[in-house]
């Protein structure tokens, strides 16, 4: 059984030096497609990626990562769309590079497809009504 998952790894400051990606490829035979990597204001490393491979390898890899202290989250929940704040202007639709935010026609309303979101965060400031939020902002 093959598996393909979009995930977010969050590395506590103590483990950021380790070559996790190299190990995922070498020890677990997984394919890695990195979407984005950064260090957030809390000095925590954050990596957004797509992992694919066989299901047993994938499960072993996730188990190993957790043992190393890596927090693993579903990429889908990283950016949230506050529909109450959205005025459906559509200004986001030309800024979003992955087509996650689109203006659906003929309804002329904005739709957000989480599965297409690559967490680039360009929408956060491009939305005049500030209807897009990150998990990080919401936690505060």
């Amino acid at each position: 059984m093959a598996i393909k998952q979009k995930l977010v790894f969050r590395f506590p400051p103590s483990v950021v030096e380790q070559p996790f990606i190299y190990r995922l490829v070498r020890d677990f035979d997984l394919m890695v497609n990195i979407l984005r990597a950064d260090i957030n204001p809390d000095k925590e490393g954050r990596l957004m990626l797509e992992l694919s491979g066989s299901e047993p390898d994938y499960r072993r890899a996730i188990e190993w990562l957790k043992q190393q202290g890596v927090r693993i989250l579903n990429l889908k929940q990283q950016i949230t769309w506050n529909e109450d704040r959205c005025t459906h202007c559509g200004a986001c639709s030309v800024i979003c590079p992955s087509g996650a935010l689109e203006l659906s026609r003929p309804a002329m309303t904005v739709t957000f497809d989480e599965s297409k979101c690559i967490v680039c965060e360009l929408c956060l400031k491009a939305c005049p009504a500030r209807a897009m939020k990150t998990l990080l902002e919401q936690a505060r």
């Binding site: 005025t87 459906h88 202007c89 559509g90 200004a91 986001c92 639709s93 030309v94 800024i95 203006l103 309804a107 002329m108 309303t109 005049p128």
Partner: peptide, 13 residues
């Protein structure tokens, strides 16, 4: 050229 509106057509409707 891709277009976007600042004015909400859904809101106008």
């Amino acid at each position: 050229v891709p277009t976007a509106s600042l004015s909400s057509y859904a809101g106008a409707r």
